[in-house]
């Protein structure tokens, strides 16, 4: 045991060695101090693209591109909803939106909780397909259905409408009883060039 010199201090019997600062300790401490101004200058010299807000803007644009570059900005109308009802991969996006925002009232499977059952044949505020988009956009029933126009991207509204439209007729067990009126079936999906990938719309 290498004995460094002791100091002449003694307090209630406690003595102290006069060991120097451990080298690695001293240099790591100095390194952390030296690092700081460089970090500061890099992130706070006003250069564009380095602030958290700038980085968020880039990430959001990237995400929007990833999601919607293929389809551009959609319109919330019947034909568009009908078209996407048949596109499995896009309905899945709608499902994701549904699970993030709608399940607390309409239930995980759309069976209805505080909000109506979406899997039966009766509808309260809807007569044609386009109405689904309208109700989601603007709300209904004195605010029982909140409006989502300021919370969701317009494409998300179309896609969640398509997902919800597809729920019709699944008649999930243990759902809320039917409310509203029976309405005409949705129009047949427009036979389009991609209709080959239609697949099972109920997934």
């Amino acid at each position: 045991m290498s004995e460094a010199p002791k100091t002449d201090h003694a307090y209630d019997g406690i003595e102290e060695y006069d060991n120097p600062l451990p080298g690695w300790w001293k240099w790591l401490f100095i390194a952390s101090i030296v690092f700081s101004p460089f970090y500061w200058v890099y992130y706070h010299n006003g250069a564009k693209g380095r602030s958290i807000e700038d980085q968020y803007g880039v990430a959001l644009a990237e995400n929007t591109r990833l999601q919607f570059a293929e389809i551009g900005d959609l319109k919330v109308d019947g034909p568009t909803i009908a078209k996407f009802m048949a596109k499995d991969s896009w309905v899945k996006v709608g499902e994701s939106v549904f699970r993030a925002n709608c399940v607390s009232c309409h239930g995980r499977e759309g069976e209805g909780k505080v909000g109506p059952n979406l899997t039966d044949e009766a509808f309260k505020n809807i007569t044609v397909l386009a109405d689904i988009g309208k109700v989601i956009n603007n709300g209904a029933g004195n605010g029982a259905m909140p409006k989502w126009s300021n919370r969701l991207h317009i494409n998300e509204i179309v896609l969640v409408s398509a997902y919800v439209a597809n729920l019709r007729g699944k008649n999930v067990e243990g759902g809320r009883p039917e409310e509203g009126n029976k309405i005409a079936p949705w129009p047949e999906p427009v036979a389009e060039e991609e209709s080959g990938e239609e697949g099972d719309a109920k997934s």
Partner: peptide, 10 residues
């Protein structure tokens, strides 16, 4: 004894 008086100060 305590390891280092100087370290305790710094």
């Amino acid at each position: 004894p305590v390891f280092s008086y100087r370290l305790s100060i710094i």
